[in-house]
């Protein structure tokens, strides 16, 4: 029993001392903190900047007096790097990420936008960043920066601090493609909405008016324009997927390519035109696969091959 009481008494005594000594982080850990903390007075201070044209700082007076004076000053000179990450492998990158993390820590409590509604920004590519920083930064490292940037970008624009705006500006690409907004479609005085679609080598323009399901393609009816039932279905797929076949009439002009390409170009054109009439159908149309243009084209032929990939027949010799 006695030993137990003695132990607890020692612990309390140690704890009382510890609270005072741990008020500031230890010297080692403080050096690597990104946030500048109140330095204690007894810290090693950097020497004043060393100017070579300043006589006093160079000790020229002493030089005039003799070499012995300069030599006397030398031990006093000590150049300390401005950035604390000078001795890391990639000081520029370290500074950047530390700066961004500091900002994020500082403003973490600010209100943010709902998920998926942050303004789309084209950040600098990995290659562009490497050129900018002049350091061989790995892609995975740069991803860390991008993650912090993405989080900072979510801060609500109405409370976005100037400091953050400035910091983000540094990482934006010079040309922002997301600022190029397509012209909004409109329904003209005759009630027509226009949509353009492409697929393979085909280009199609579709005009959609309210009607009862009549389709005219290049001046021909659907059955005359396409012999395959599958192609006919493709043409009105956007309307079928949204259950609008008997609500609209379609005029389409398709050029170039073959039948399948034309039919699928018309699919896209019709869905674009339909989105002008009813913008709320966009998610349904995306699910039906009529919003994104299929970028595939004919693969080029390569030398040494008979077609894009076909190898010539093997011959013994």
């Amino acid at each position: 029993m006695e030993t137990r009481a003695m132990r607890s008494g020692f612990r309390q005594a140690i704890a009382a001392f510890r609270s005072q000594t741990k008020r500031y982080p230890s010297y080692q850990s403080r050096r690597f903190l990104a946030t500048p903390t109140q330095p204690p007075t007894d810290e090693i201070r950097a020497a004043p900047p060393f100017r070579f044209n300043d006589k006093q700082s160079q000790g020229e007076e002493d030089m005039e007096e003799g070499n012995s004076g300069f030599a006397k000053l030398l031990p006093k000179l000590r150049i300390v790097p401005a950035s604390p990450s000078y001795f890391t492998g990639k000081p520029g990158f370290t500074d950047d990420i530390l700066e961004l993390q500091t900002l994020l820590r500082k403003y973490i409590t600010l209100p943010v936008l709902p998920p998926g509604e942050a303004p789309r920004i084209a950040w600098k590519t990995h290659a562009q960043y490497k050129v900018q920083s002049g350091e061989p930064v790995k892609a995975a490292r740069y991803t860390k920066i991008l993650q912090v940037l993405a989080r900072l970008n979510y801060i609500h624009p109405s409370v976005m601090p100037e400091e953050v705006k400035k910091a983000l500006e540094k990482y934006k690409r010079d040309v922002q493609p997301f600022l190029n907004k397509p012209k909004p479609g409109y329904v003209d005085e005759y009630g027509r909405a226009r949509g353009v679609g492409r697929r393979k080598a085909c280009h199609a323009v579709a005009y959609l008016v309210e009607g009862e399901g009549e389709v005219m393609i290049n001046g021909k009816s659907l059955s005359q324009a396409f012999g395959r039932v599958h192609d006919r279905e493709s043409c009105i797929w956007a309307l079928k997927a949204t259950d609008r076949i008997d609500k609209y009439n379609v005029w389409a002009v398709a050029q170039g390519g073959g039948t399948t390409g034309q039919a699928e170009a018309i699919t896209l054109a019709v869905s674009k035109a339909l989105m002008v009439h009813e913008p709320a159908l966009k998610p349904a149309l995306r699910r039906a696969g009529c919003v994104t243009r299929d970028p595939r084209r004919v693969e080029r032929k390569k030398p040494g091959k008979l077609k894009a990939r076909k190898m010539p027949a093997w011959v013994k010799r």
Binding site: G213, V215, S221, L222, S223, E233, I245
Partner: peptide, 19 residues
């Protein structure tokens, strides 16, 4: 129903009976 009739009618080039 109306939607099936409308769909097949449109697919058959405006009610071409063979199609």
């Amino acid at each position: 129903n109306d939607s099936l009739v409308g769909e097949k009618w449109a697919l058959s080039g405006g009610g071409i009976i063979g199609e």
